[in-house]
Design a protein around this nucleic acid. Structure first.
Length: 442
RNA sequence: GUGGGCGUAGCUCAGUCGGUAGAGCUCUGGAUUGUGAUUCCAGCGGUCGUGGGUUCGAGCCCCAUCGUCCACCCCA
């Protein structure tokens, strides 16, 4: 026991906080299923070769047995750093048993070796959905993603999330139309626009990538385009760049924006500075930020990947699209700033007051019956003043206490109302039955 | 990994020029001998992150180290 206390980047919550986390995870899971996604879980580890093939320079934790033979085979494993790469491997492995287009969700922990900061962890949950097609995948799925994100996030007790939308083909075509080759480098710099501003972006494009003043300006102008309607089309065309890939991207983006008409105003916008990770995205890309809390970065993100899942020699490939919700980032931030109020720190809905030891048998009989009826029930651990017992219940947020007797009574600790109650019919009021979470301020 | 800020009670922090360690909240007990939240009283709780140095004397000054936060990098 040399190392006690927290390990940096590996959060551990108190019961009330974990209940809040489970609450969010359950809401998310239910919405994923509403949209027709099926659950899977992949193992925590993958061969290093799988992780490294698409992972760029991710910080990966390598797994090793303590008593591993010195001459053990070379196969090395690592903890997965996201859920998309393991999913790609999974699809390839089980492709003959899956139905395409395959819609799946996956809610699991992932691990990254990055340095801890607010909103940034080394062990955290990702809530991931993806759709994978065989040979072809309709652009209508590109539109389903932001709609789903909005419907999931809008019902959670968190600040409003704005989803930003872009398309890699549009950007790449535009840059190619200008004769720029190092596409991903330009993306990397344009992506910083919101953070470092227009002047420094242009400066970097010229100094680091040796773009001409004119090209740097055009890249900036493209990156500065934002709109919550279709006006971005004219703005892009006005820049006078021609390229087939750009036209294609523009058309896809338009189709997605049109489909998002069902969303309330202000919940989505086109933002041509959004690039996302530099690795496998090929078309639509998404990123969501909490309004008023943009500094912690994206709380959800994703995009289309047409080449992530390698094709069978003669067969067509498996284009996919997906998004991920960073529930640990959201929750860690809100809890760290005390922006969430949980109504209780235990699932218990009613606690039975224990007058003396002789009453324990009766208390257990009452508890048995209430639990049988699906009511989370606990018995106070020792005989004590009723005041003490009630105070204890109140501190843990338990909404009701139960007084045994010839005519049993139940008291609501929120309202102070005490009434006769029967173990066969009493129900907690709906608003007190389960944990409630409220967002304070913001 | 690189650079900067900060480490004092469980939490938030004060601590003057270097002179024996403080407050609020929390927690425990009592006022209140079976019905809570308010109020009042008392108590518990610190090797001042750690190690070294300067000094008659260090929470305070110096060095190192660890932790943490911020920026870079990258991302949920």
């Amino acid at each position: 026991m040399s190392k006690l206390g927290p390990i940096s980047g590996f959060p551990e919550w108190l019961p009330a906080q974990r209940m809040a986390e489970q609450y969010l995870l359950q809401k998310i899971q239910r919405t994923f299923e509403l949209f027709g996604f099926a659950p899977i879980e992949t193992r925590a580890i993958e061969p290093l070769s799988v992780l490294l093939s698409k992972g760029d320079d991710k910080e990966i934790y390598v797994i090793k047995r303590l008593h591993e033979d010195a001459d053990a085979p070379d196969e090395k494993w690592g903890l997965h750093f996201d859920l998309t790469v393991p999913f790609a491997r999974y699809v390839q492995e089980f492709r003959h048993q899956l139905h395409f287009p395959f819609k799946r969700y996956q809610i699991q922990k992932v691990w990254r070796g990055e340095r801890k900061q607010e909103g940034r962890y080394r062990e955290f949950y990702q809530c991931d959905i993806d759709v994978v097609g065989q040979g072809h995948l309709s652009v209508s799925y590109d539109a389903e993603m932001p709609i789903l994100l909005h419907q999931v996030l809008a019902q959670l007790p968190i600040p409003a999330v704005k989803i930003k939308l872009n398309n890699r083909k549009l950007l790449e075509g535009f840059y190619r139309g200008l004769g720029i080759e190092n596409f991903t480098q330009v993306l990397r710099i344009i992506d910083k626009l919101a953070k470092i501003g227009a002047d420094r972006v242009v400066g970097l494009l010229i100094s680091e990538l040796h773009l001409s003043d004119e090209n740097a300006q055009k890249c900036l102008l493209l990156g500065q385009i934002k709109s919550d309607d279709l006006s971005f089309i004219a703005e892009v065309e006005q820049l006078g760049v021609q390229h087939p890939l750009m036209i294609e991207g523009l058309a896809e983006l338009t189709q997605v924006m049109r489909a998002c008409d069902v969303l309330p105003p202000g919940s989505i916008e086109v933002d041509l500075s959004i690039a996302r990770g530099l690795d496998y995205y090929t078309g639509s890309v998404y990123e969501g930020v909490m309004l008023g809390h943009e500094h912690i970065g994206a709380v959800c993100s994703g995009g289309r990947y047409d080449n992530l899942i390698a094709s069978d020699h003669k067969q067509q490939g498996f284009p996919g699209i997906g998004v991920s919700i960073g529930i640990t980032r959201i929750l860690g931030y809100l809890l760290g700033r005390n922006l969430l109020q949980m109504s209780r720190s235990t699932p218990v809905a009613v606690m039975i007051i224990l007058p003396d030891e002789a009453a324990r048998t009766e208390a257990q009989r009452v508890a048995f019956r209430l639990r049988e009826r699906g009511i989370s029930t606990d018995i106070y651990h020792q005989p004590q003043n009723f005041g003490k017992q009630m105070q204890s219940a109140q501190k843990r947020g338990i909404p009701y206490v139960w007084f045994m007797g010839d005519v049993p009574q139940v008291k609501n600790l929120h309202t102070g109302i005490q009434q006769p109650a029967s173990i066969d019919t009493w129900q907690p009021e709906a608003c007190y039955e389960k944990l409630t979470i409220t967002l304070t301020r913001s």
